[in-house]
């Protein structure tokens, strides 16, 4: 990582898929973590250059369509299958799922979860709450749900990290993290730190 003088060793390059959605918000969060260099990803070459990837919130149909049209789908899925740490928020969760209960297809098809898109309804049903998620932080974490999905079912080694009103809203499977909500829209750093410290750093040989 970084030496005390701030120069020194290698930076951790974390990509944020930059096709559409709340991209800058994630980049600004990552910027605040020492030793992390956020990179906006739009091309195959850029995907090869990162140690880990965040798939942001946005419209999953739009992001999925762009991934497909620009031949990024296979490359991203392949890197995830080979162990690249990845975190999907909201639309990102949908794109990672192996099953989508109310849509005719899947996208990256990498995580053993079944999600329901727009599970809460229209924008009038968007909401904010707080929750303690022991795996991630000792303090309460603010959670923002925007036309959010939730997870209906998990299988294999998927670990459920959080539920809100009985609905699964955060889970992890090895190097893959998925959240229905948007930590990038709050001031709280817990999830970004968790991703970097618990999921990215341990698998890197820097």
């Amino acid at each position: 990582m970084q030496n005390a003088d701030g120069k020194g060793d290698k930076m951790i390059n974390i990509g944020v898929l930059g096709l559409q959605g709340a991209v800058v918000e994630h980049m600004e969060k990552l910027q605040q973590i020492n030793g992390v260099s956020p990179i906006k990803i739009k091309t195959k070459q850029e995907i090869e250059s990162v140690h880990a990837l965040i798939i942001p919130g946005g419209e999953s149909t739009a992001i999925g369509k762009l991934m497909e049209d620009f031949n990024l789908m296979y490359i991203i899925a392949d890197r995830i299958k080979k162990g690249m740490p990845v975190w999907g928020t909201c639309a990102g969760m949908i794109l990672m799922a192996k099953k989508i209960s109310n849509y005719h297809r899947t996208f990256l098809n990498v995580m053993d979860i079944k999600v329901k898109r727009n599970a809460y309804g229209s924008q009038l049903d968007s909401f904010r709450t707080t929750l303690r998620i022991p795996e991630v932080s000792d303090s309460e974490i603010p959670l923002v749900f925007i036309r959010a999905p939730y997870v209906e079912e998990v299988w294999n080694d998927v670990k459920i990290l959080a539920r809100v009103d009985d609905k699964i809203v955060a889970c992890r499977q090895a190097h893959m993290l998925a959240t229905s909500f948007h930590p990038e829209l709050t001031d709280d750093m817990s999830f970004h730190k968790y991703f970097v410290e618990q999921m990215v750093i341990p698998v890197l040989n820097l």
Binding site: G18, Q20, A22, G58, D69, Q123, S126, I146, H182
Partner: peptide, 30 residues
Amino acid sequence: LNKNLAQMLKGGVIMDVVNVEQAQIAEKAG
């Protein structure tokens, strides 16, 4: 929350449609 929804639309295209068929074309186009 309402400002947040707009953030989710960033980098995207919002299309005028006058019927169901056009709406589906728009969604499919991204």
